[in-house]
Simulated scan of single mutants.
Amino acid sequence: MITLSKTEREIIESSIRDIKDFPKEGIIFKDITTLLNNKEAYGVLMNHLYQRYKEYSLDYVAGIDARGFIFGAALAQMLGLGFVPIRKKGKLPYTTISQKYALEYGVDEIEVHIDAFGEQKGAKVLIIDDLIATGGTANAAAELVNQTGAECIECCFIIGLSFLEGIKKLEEKTKVYSLIEVN
């Protein structure tokens, strides 16, 4: 398994900005916009992801709405694969299947086109997003991929907030790779 070198980790970590008390007091928000506009850091990140996943025999890369689209679409193109968006409810134009998941207060729902992974049963899919916290959205995304007849091979996150235990919960369903773990 390919993991980040110390130098790669330092380049990527130093390009992510912490915003205190956003979106509410007590939260330290991990802002990836500074990673995206740093051509060296974004290049190191995307090259690392390409090197890690080029031997996985994947069929598709799926990105979780919305920041997962940024990394997922670029990685899919680099790997010569199709990209599938996993969207919030009501955003896809064709027939969909959906999966609900719990939020701190209430529920939300994501969906994917019923034919997103083609006619091939058992298509191998990598799910990618910028961050995993409590894991609700990621768990729902993995469930959704599996409901289509495809197989979630791994979930990849740029940042994993391991102290919230979403990673541990998701590992019950699939392999999980977080480039940077925050304890």
Rank of each mutant, 00 (worst) to 15 (best):
I70L: 15
P85H: 01
A66V: 14
I70S: 04
V112R: 08
A133G: 03
K88V: 07
A74Q: 11
I132Y: 01
E143Q: 14
P85F: 08
T95V: 08
P93R: 11
I110C: 15
I97S: 03
I97R: 04
D59K: 09
F71R: 10
T148Q: 04
S98L: 01
E119I: 00
A123M: 02
V125F: 09
G82Y: 05
N146K: 01
P85N: 02
A74C: 04
I86S: 08
G135M: 06
G80T: 05
A116N: 03
K124Y: 00
L75R: 09
I132P: 04
A102I: 02
A73M: 12
L103D: 08
I114R: 14
D115M: 11
A74T: 08
A142Y: 01
L75G: 10
K124F: 04
L103V: 02
A140I: 09
L79Q: 11
R67G: 09
K121S: 14
A138S: 15
S98R: 14
F83H: 08
Y60G: 09
G90F: 07
Q147E: 13
T137E: 08
K89C: 09
G135E: 10
I64G: 01
D130Y: 05
Q99P: 02
F117D: 01
G90P: 07
D108A: 15
Q120I: 11
A133E: 05
P93V: 12
S57A: 14
G122Y: 05
G82R: 08
R67H: 09
G63M: 10
G135S: 08
H113K: 06
G80F: 01
Y105A: 11
G106Y: 08
E55Y: 10
Y94R: 14
D129V: 02
V112P: 06
Y60W: 09
K121F: 06
E143K: 15
K54D: 02
Q77A: 13
Q77H: 14
T96A: 06
Y53P: 01
A140N: 12
P93M: 12
G72T: 01
V107Y: 08
N139R: 13
V125E: 09
D108R: 07
V61Y: 11
T134P: 02
G72M: 05
V107I: 13
